[in-house]
Design a protein around this nucleic acid. Sequence first.
DNA 1: CAATAGATCATCT
DNA 2: GATGATCTATTGC
Length: 207
Amino acid sequence: MFEGPTIDVARRLVGAMLYRRIPRGAPDAGTLLAGRIVETEAYLPLVDPACHGYRGPTKRTAALFGRAGFAYVYLIYGMYYCLNVTTERAGIGAAVLIRALEPVAGIAAMQRRRGARVALDALASGPGNLCRAMSIDLRCDGADLRSGDIVIARPKDTPAVEIAVSGRIGLNVAQRWPLRFFDPRSPSVSPYRKGRRRAQETRAVSR
DNA sequence: CAATAGATCATCT
DNA sequence: GATGATCTATTGC
């Protein structure tokens, strides 16, 4: 699931499931949330100036440099969290950013986090919204994604999906690198906005 | 529809 | 002290 080159993992994660058990103490504690991953971005080892590991490990990026299959969570713009899955072997800083989910289970609890008037398709669309809906914050940094309160898995009956490719979103460097992967049929794929338009030179790829 | 401002803070220089 | 792998509300076509 998390083995192999980062790009392969990013593609493999589209269509996979993300499960989240809300921990004790939080609202809706014990509730199981689930969503189907429909959008990811690869942040490559060594050569990618947009990857947080590009300049070597720091305290913040410690998890990024750990073994594959763990969470790397960071705070962005002072108010949102982003969930990444670490890839590659220990000592290499690379990851896949999880950008959007289609809500599958625990929708009422997600709505309590995001606001009741938010449309179903938008509940976990975009990395910041996704983390808010799934109750993911810095406490999740370093978590094992094979077992625990956050699990990413590809159930046996997971159907093959069409995967489209585009440039990455929100970057100042290397944004045109074709490292964003998404299910073009999903209504939950995060919308492009001004300044992101350029990245949307997509081409469909089936598998 | 497009464009802009503002919120807000851990981390790094 | 500056900087974001963002989102939302609001403004102006």
